[in-house]
Design a protein around this nucleic acid. Structure first.
Lengths: 183, 183
DNA sequence: CTACGATATGTAAATACTGACATATAACAC
DNA sequence: GTGTTATATGTCAGTATTTACATATCGTAG
């Protein structure tokens, strides 16, 4: 959905290139898209009048297009933000692997779950750092849920809870696979 | 991925119709696919020699095709089950909405999060019931991580933790949106 | 002087996925 | 009688997504 892009453009005007990095860094833990998806999506949003762009010439670099959200785009975002989310299953390949772990080599399976535990633990640590920074830096803004800072913090809290729970589950599975006799 | 289908067929031989309902019921909380995806996928798996089917004629119903996993399919499943999962972002529309919640009407946003809290709480209750049933019924098998019962139980535990965490997060967001003055 | 990474924007091909279209029978409820 | 649900299998169109191709400049590290 292009609403991810609108959500970023509602905060600041950005180029397609900037949007690509923002999606990777900021929305990374709950959304993803490459630039090959973003540029066509921007064109579509512009066709629908939800964003507009202004060309910026640069001396020693390729010219760029700075996109801004329009009033109509802001309205669309407001409406979308409170519309009920369609029930869609969470695709998770690791859980699918857990479902078939009984056919596999148990040591190898255990190693895979340990590796995932480590990965999610790492992310958790990174999020905890960001959280500390936000709580110090945005102390005032976080008291008001009408600020973009609060919204960012809310998504971070989701990431925090998600990674913590995920890492714990991986540990639980790995422990059991390790404790078994069969290799 | 067709590995979801292989994972189900590794447990028992099934028709495309059965697979469709199994995917909905059993894999529902971490995978999803309609029958329009399953029938072509079965054909592809058969082409690659990972499954085979046997036609079964029925008197008063349309004939059916019962699919079984082949030895080669079982090998592929074993290899896949311990191969590292590619890092792919978890797509979550509600978290995306939270990210843009600051532009929206706060009461409406709060109501949406309350509704989601209810939905995830409901699922959590359903999973808790299933968990109770499994722990009673499969007491012995759950001690051995080499059984399909253990694998099913492991995926259920993931669903349990996921829904509990999700519902709590929704409540946290809703509480803050409700506590604010602006409507 | 060569390779790589950051900046900057696109297209093309292939795969994956959703939703609608399409058909056929039997059982059961209203 | 009529409508719905369950059984049973498919296709098709459109959208979404990923991966690779394609180009161009500047700065920096080797």
């Amino acid at each position: 959905m292009g609403y991810a892009l609108l959500g970023l453009l509602a905060r600041e005007a950005l180029t397609g290139y900037d949007l690509t990095s923002r999606v990777r860094e900021r929305l990374g833990f709950f959304w993803g898209a490459g630039h090959s998806q973003i540029y066509p999506e921007l064109a579509k949003l512009e066709e629908r009048g939800l964003v507009s762009h202004r060309p910026v010439e640069q001396a020693e670099r390729p010219d760029k297009k700075v996109y801004s959200i329009t009033a109509s785009g802001m309205q669309a975002l407001e409406a979308w933000a409170v519309s009920p989310v369609p029930e869609r299953p969470t695709r998770d390949e690791l859980v699918l692997k857990a479902y078939s772990s009984w056919v596999a080599d148990q040591d190898e399976a255990a190693a895979m779950f340990r590796e995932e535990e480590r990965r999610h633990g790492e992310r958790l640590a990174r999020y905890e750092e960001i959280r500390g920074w936000m709580e110090r830096e945005w102390e005032e803004e976080l008291r008001d849920p009408g600020t973009p800072q609060f919204a960012t913090y809310a998504t971070l809290r989701r990431g925090l809870g998600y990674e913590r729970e995920y890492a714990e589950w991986c540990r639980w599975v790995a422990e059991r696979l390790e404790g078994s006799a069969e290799g």
